[in-house]
Design a protein around this nucleic acid. Sequence first.
DNA 1: TAAAATATTGAAAAGGCTTCCGCGATGCTC
DNA 2: GAGCATCGCGGAAGCCTTTTCAATATTTTA
Lengths: 357, 357
Amino acid sequence: MADIDDRTLDPTRKGEPRGPDARRHVRTLADLARLAGVSAGTVSRALAGKTLVNVETRDRIQALARHHGFKPNQMASKLRTGRTGVIGVVIPLGQDRRGQISDPLFLRLLGHLADELAECGYDIMLSRAAPDGTADWLERISGSGMVDGIIVIGQSDQADVIEQVAHAYRPLVVWGQGRSGQTQCTVGTDNELGGRIAVEHLLASGARHLAFLGQTGAIEAAARYRGAAAAAQSAGAPFVHLPVDPAGEAMGPQIDRALAAADLPIEGIVAASDLVAMAALRILHERGRAVPGDVRIVGFDDLPFAAQTTPPLTTIRQEIAQGARALVERLKARIEGQPTRSLAMPPRIVVRQSTRS
Amino acid sequence: MADIDDRTLDPTRKGEPRGPDARRHVRTLADLARLAGVSAGTVSRALAGKTLVNVETRDRIQALARHHGFKPNQMASKLRTGRTGVIGVVIPLGQDRRGQISDPLFLRLLGHLADELAECGYDIMLSRAAPDGTADWLERISGSGMVDGIIVIGQSDQADVIEQVAHAYRPLVVWGQGRSGQTQCTVGTDNELGGRIAVEHLLASGARHLAFLGQTGAIEAAARYRGAAAAAQSAGAPFVHLPVDPAGEAMGPQIDRALAAADLPIEGIVAASDLVAMAALRILHERGRAVPGDVRIVGFDDLPFAAQTTPPLTTIRQEIAQGARALVERLKARIEGQPTRSLAMPPRIVVRQSTRS
DNA sequence: TAAAATATTGAAAAGGCTTCCGCGATGCTC
DNA sequence: GAGCATCGCGGAAGCCTTTTCAATATTTTA
């Protein structure tokens, strides 16, 4: 560990943390009001840009505030108005993944949400919640007046808890697989359709003996599997499930074993995610099976790296930018008390070399 | 777009949003105090778990609060105590990347920060800031009493602005490349050392004609290049710079051109990031150049997919989990007014097949 | 020119919580 | 049994804004 020269401790600035030239006496509206020779109320109105103040006093006060680097205390403001301007974004951690937000898709969705919410003036309060069996992880956020609304990214295994909270707390939207008859408003990809599209594409490209690679514990992966299996069945194509753990180090050997265990020579693979597909590409290459020559592979998500695999990966693309927009739009509607409908976005297949012969 | 059945609009719950059985009269401490037959102060102490209240009244009040689903209003609490329990995490967007947090390393670091901060009871306020030439994007957050401290992820091209704010606002730490003589406290990888390690590894594995692949606009990438170039020079090995754009769609063709343009047969490549390295692997494979046989490649970051490329990628690993811990630890120290030192973590090379002959 | 309307501003009341201060009541010491 | 420390709790001040409400000052209208 190399230490870098650091002059953080400036002895001349020991007591009060004050600005460059001691103009930091201004901490509250009242301070600024005194300086401007008006009342606190007027300052408040002026800084809020209200028209009820004389234009020139307003400009004068704003200039003064800028000069002193004064920003009204947000906590007081939020308390008074009852509006926080903050949206809680919470990612429930399933019991399997311990203490680490790992899903790259969620992370990217978060990035898009940050854009969308910033666009309409909201700040984001991020919580990675470790469900503990009760609904407390969610109610801690919804019930404390900290946020104006909540976006839950991924239900994990907490769909029931979320549903329960959604009954009493309206400004709440969820990214994930929707279920019919639910109260909560979900936005997500139609995973079942995605699985079907993948299988149909494989069949059309000439593959007949198919496999689904990856675990189906998550509700989304299960839907993908269902769709794929249904499509294979209706085409009369053989279809097996090869479960491998997407997170662990051992994914390589697992895929290896799974492929070896299949008693048919697999010709087409639907992977539960791009990362699984990528690992499969590598394993197959190492075993000397050509892609797409011997085996074709379809991934899921279309993360940025999917275009850079060897060979580039055909994949079922989730439109997360669009999803983020839909989530925010619905949340805003719900905050205003309007009704919303859940949305299952149809995925789109992006065909690259891994299925092109 | 398929619509899912949604019973969100329950006509029986039109007016006040109240809980299942109308026990939602409890909105404030005073309400609960009335119910419990004590004063508001006592309720406050009881819910805070203070020892100044009788154990049995405390338990009684806590049970009552739980039963009514009451959580103290955070805004009021924060206003009163002056402590927000919130850390601002801000990612400045350089002018090049327009409106999208894209760097997967930053996103992963964010995940680790979420873990670390949750650990010590902090919430995260996430801001993706679009710098506008002034320091306002940062002061908006630091100056408004919204957060107890700030973590900046990646300086982008705002190092000077950050430095300026750091003079007046102490609870601020930065992820990124440190510079000597700075006031701000940075934690980051020693990128220069990383570049050097990569080149030394390539040289040791027998490659002599080397190239650095990727742009050096970002301060971190520039340091990697510097280290690599210095190591190559001191070994007397030929070294060229092939700039390609890491973000755009056109990276493939760019790499193609860059490799074709080099007048020497490149034997070893240091990539600016894993994603660039991955694209290079693909291009080389398509052109029939064997990795590691003809060319060896070293990536940078060690993102999860680096282990799954074909062949698996040797890469300079950034210890971001450790980095997140260091950031939070330093931030806590600074919040308490203690001095801190910047930290440049030595990276570690992870050797995989892409450099193993 | 008087009356009414408008434009600005000040004073003060929330908003919900935390915490200092102080008062009874209880337990202890000698 | 008197004096003293402790305990448990109620009362009230204060955190800093926003937003009425009312009061002046300025115009406009009749």
